[in-house]
Nucleic acid binder design. Structure first.
Length: 112
DNA sequence: CTCTTGACGCAAT
DNA sequence: CATTGCGCCAAGA
């Protein structure tokens, strides 16, 4: 079993998040899979929490059900929702509506 | 070294 | 739809 390089892991997470189109969103698990570590979804969340103040659209990452599970990590608990709504993504009760069509799967979209 | 903690995921109920 | 339970694994106490 090879130990993962957390540096490289984080870097790749950032790269993929930057590729999420405006008005779309993806999940922690989908990103983890695309990187090659299907069971490290929790680490993806940890990584994003530490990178919340960067120039990357971390607000476009939610859990597999389309729920804004990370809203508490933003400055204001409603920041993530505001950012999404500014991109015409409908959010109700901390959950993205029409999740099926908003979901952006890096595995498919990036032909992996 | 052991135990707990997550911006998680999924199947079962 | 909501809840429960279990698997997962790096990090920090």
């Amino acid at each position: 079993m090879i130990k993962i390089d957390s540096k490289e892991f984080e870097h790749t997470v950032y790269e993929i998040v930057c590729l999420i189109p405006k008005g779309r969103a993806t999940s922690y698990g989908a990103i983890a899979k695309a990187i090659g570590y299907p069971n490290l979804s929790r680490m993806v969340g940890k990584t994003l929490a530490h990178a919340s103040e960067m120039k990357i659209p971390v607000h476009r990452v939610v859990n597999s059900k389309g729920i804004l599970s990370g809203r508490e990590a933003f400055k204001h608990p409603t920041t993530q929702q505001s950012l999404l709504e500014a991109e015409d993504v409908i959010v109700r009760n901390n959950k993205i509506q029409n999740w099926r069509s908003v979901f952006w799967d890096p595995m498919i979209e990036l032909h992996l």
